[in-house]
Design a protein around this nucleic acid. Structure first.
Lengths: 116, 116
DNA sequence: CGTGAGTACCTCGCATAGCGAGGTACCGAA
DNA sequence: TTCGGTACCTCGCTATGCGAGGTACTCACG
């Protein structure tokens, strides 16, 4: 068992991921997961994480949702980014960038020192 | 309450952070936390996260620990990276870099598309 | 001497959130 | 009619960060 399990790293970024793929179009849940998988094969967002995240974001006012008919199958729930959601996305991106910079600062200064 | 809370992002990276600062020298717990805070002011690792992480890493064989006398105060527990710990650190760094690249791939392709 | 502050370690209960498994339902093809 | 794919949802489990609390040692102050 090595450190840095994917499922732990994912905590906190799921919402950024969801908001990001909704930036361009309104999508339904399954499609959101597929887009994320297509863009980054290493990120396999499970349904047990996706749907609760969608509900959280909707409850927070970042997303609005409407039911629509299914193509060949059950009805779909389409999610659309609200104005507030766009603001939250920008904030999340900024916070993520800061966090990555911070972790890099710790991780890489040590690496450089041990290498130099 | 905006998404991407620091405490959630931190999940999974605490061990990378700890292993990183131990790459150069053996340090005791308090000092580990201080080094991390010095390298990145945004990362305030709490003691309630630090000590359990140290014990996990020791149990996993990534760290070896020895008691030493305190300067002016209680005795200290010094942690040193084992060979296996060095291997785990390299793995963790690689896994972190992959993860950051994956999140960036999702987050930034959408951003570019919406901007273009 | 007693008190308080600083250092250093540790643990406990709580909250958050991902994961896998399970369940419902609808549709078209074999 | 059954099977497989789509699409949604929930539940219990697990991992782990956080704040609060506790112990213990040392030194300075009055």
């Amino acid at each position: 068992m090595s450190p840095l399990r994917r499922s732990q790293l994912l905590k906190g970024t799921t919402e950024l991921l969801v908001l990001s793929v909704l930036e361009e179009d309104a999508l339904h849940g399954y499609e959101i997961a597929q887009r994320i998988r297509d863009a980054a094969t290493g990120l396999a967002l499970s349904e047990g994480a996706l749907y609760p995240a969608l509900h959280r974001l909707e409850g927070r006012g970042a997303l609005s949702a409407t039911w629509g008919p299914g193509q060949a199958g059950p009805r779909r729930r389409y999610y659309r980014l609200s104005d507030d959601g766009r603001r939250q996305l920008a904030e999340s991106r900024a916070e993520w960038d800061r966090f990555v910079a911070d972790v890099g600062a710790v991780s890489r200064t040590a690496e450089d020192a041990s290498r130099g």
